[in-house]
Write a protein that binds this DNA or RNA. Structure first.
Length: 480
RNA sequence: GGCCCAUUCGUCUAUCGGUUAGGACGUCAGAUUUUCAUUCUGAAAAGAGGAGUUCGACUCUCCUAUGGGCUACCA
């Protein structure tokens, strides 16, 4: 038995933002490597020159770093198996492709797009007919010398079947006649994914390949390549897709949120990672909250499920709220601060943070929760009518003057002092404290839902502001 | 169309031949609460359908249905 180190890789194409499915693939590859004391490698697959998106590589670095998935080797950190960007490895692919041609496992193909189009069958499918495989050596040399554009195609046998064992899906068998003579080297000299992934995974000594299940049916093609070279085939773990709903995959084309979007919406990276880890994998116990380190310890491919999972933003919010609640108060405050920028009314922001922390799920909830601070006028007076607290517009009109008087004479404007003043006032007027508190809270915020009770809202707004608001509410009640 | 894969509460999932089919989110109902929220308790909620195999199937086999993937000089 070989005791070689486990090496996994994350091999994204720099085509835009990192979507959640990609992030999960990276996460699982990372977890598996770390669980087995191995290495996690980053490789940039930029062989499709047309889909390249500027800055996408920077996004990949940023995302990985934010997620805490540090790579041991990669374009930015180097390593013994570089370069780690495929466009810088062109000479390597060409050399290996030609090796395959010499061994008859691949061949030059000079077919034009027009001819290829004629190969489309009645059901709309195209399958290459190995036309150029039958060219004589002299014919090939002549075309090459004449500068006819060429590609190199894989020569797959049409008899028999290929079986391999996937760590997630088990045994998969595909009839060889279903396989195509894939293009290995494109006419622009770049390799296709079909070729580059094999060459690079071998050269980079990748032992375990984690990738989306869309590659499941073409894996036999890759295995034939490994065999043709006489290379060891890595272990595969194909991953089920993450869906937007039962029918559709999560996709950036449909505007589904990607990792950066969630960060921008005030979700915590650890919470996103935790949630994503559990989409398609389970720890075989009922724990739901995992730090990255805990995930490393708990991870096992046997817990990866075979069926796709629908992404549930509601549950992500719940998990994120758990993380938000556990934040040290100063850190919560620091993270919430950017969302306080728009607040113009002077309020005690530290107190606001303390009130908000147990109440919001994501930081983007802050503006709505704090909206009452700057926007007070013209709220619906019917808010004073509330069956649950047995409050009403009429009662508010009757009670507010006394409340204003009591609070105006209060010097200590702390929450405790405020509550201490309001409670006896209710008793004195033969009211349930709930009734009074409801009235004061509405009078001071004009909102049905607020990030705290009456006394807390008063304390937050400060004496002058709170008294002024109560008076204004009373005026409106009287004029109504 | 062909091939590959999948199918347990609305959603994420446990179960790896014998369970009252468990948990979580969400929902609903109560309790606590200084409103809202938190917290706590409880409830409703699932094996796609049909054949087998078996003393016994969610679990194994086959068929069907449904969904997804692949079928590119995209990855």
């Amino acid at each position: 038995m070989s005791t070689s180190t486990v090496r996994t890789r994350f091999a994204p194409s720099p085509t835009g933002f990192m979507h959640i499915g990609n992030l999960r693939t990276a996460l699982y590859a990372y977890l598996f490597a770390k669980k087995n004391s191995g290495q996690f490698i980053l490789r940039i697959e930029d062989t499709d020159r047309e889909r390249l998106v500027e800055d996408a590589v920077a996004t990949i670095y940023a995302t990985l770093s934010l997620a805490g998935l540090g790579h041991d080797e990669g374009p930015d950190v180097g390593g013994l198996h570089g370069p780690y960007t495929q466009s810088e490895r062109r000479h390597i692919y060409e050399k290996y492709a030609k090796e395959l041609v010499n061994a008859s496992h691949a061949y030059y193909c000079f077919c034009t797009k027009e001819r290829l189009d004629t190969l489309t069958d009645e059901t709309g499918n195209r399958r290459y007919d190995k036309h150029c495989l039958h060219l004589s050596k002299a014919e090939v040399e002549a075309k090459l010398a004449a500068g006819v554009p060429w590609v190199i195609r894989q020569n797959v046998p049409q008899e028999g079947a290929t079986t391999f064992s996937d760590m997630v899906y088990g045994e998969i068998t595909v009839e060889n006649r279903e396989l195509h003579d894939n293009v290995l080297l494109k006419s622009d000299g770049f390799p296709t994914y079909n070729f580059a992934n094999v060459v690079d995974d071998h050269l980079m000594e990748i032992t375990h390949v984690f990738r989306g299940m869309e590659y499941l049916s073409s894996t036999p093609n890759y295995n034939m390549l490994y065999d043709a070279f006489g290379w060891a085939i890595p272990r595969y773990a194909h991953l089920p897709h993450i869906m937007r709903d039962k029918q559709h995959k999560l996709s950036k084309r449909h505007g589904d949120a990607n990792f950066e979007d969630f960060i921008a919406k005030g979700f915590l990276p650890e919470a996103i990672l935790n949630y994503v880890a559990l989409l398609g994998w389970n720890p075989k116990n009922e724990v739901e909250k995992f730090s990255l380190q805990e995930l490393v310890e708990a991870f096992d491919v046997s817990g990866i499920s075979k069926s796709s999972a629908v992404f549930d933003g509601v549950k992500l919010r719940w998990l994120n709220a758990q993380y938000v609640k556990e934040l040290p108060p100063q850190q919560f405050h620091a993270l919430a601060a950017p969302y306080y920028g728009a607040i113009s009314t002077p309020v005690n922001l530290n107190l606001l943070s303390a009130l908000l922390q147990p109440r919001i799920s994501a930081f983007s909830d802050v503006p709505e929760a704090a909206e009452f601070i700057d926007s007070f006028e013209g709220y619906d007076l019917a808010l004073f009518d509330n069956a649950g607290s047995k409050s009403s517009v009429q009662l508010a009109k009757e009670t507010l003057p006394a409340a204003i008087a009591a609070l105006e004479s209060l010097a200590d404007w702390s929450n405790d002092a405020l509550f201490g003043a309001l409670e006896p006032l209710a008793a004195q007027r033969d009211l349930k404290k709930k009734q009074l508190l409801w009235i004061v809270r509405i009078a001071v915020t004009g909102r049905l839902s607020t990030p705290g009770g009456a006394s807390e809202m008063c304390a937050l707004l400060g004496k002058a502001q709170a008294i002024e608001r109560m008076k204004q509410s009373l005026r409106r009640l009287r004029n109504a």
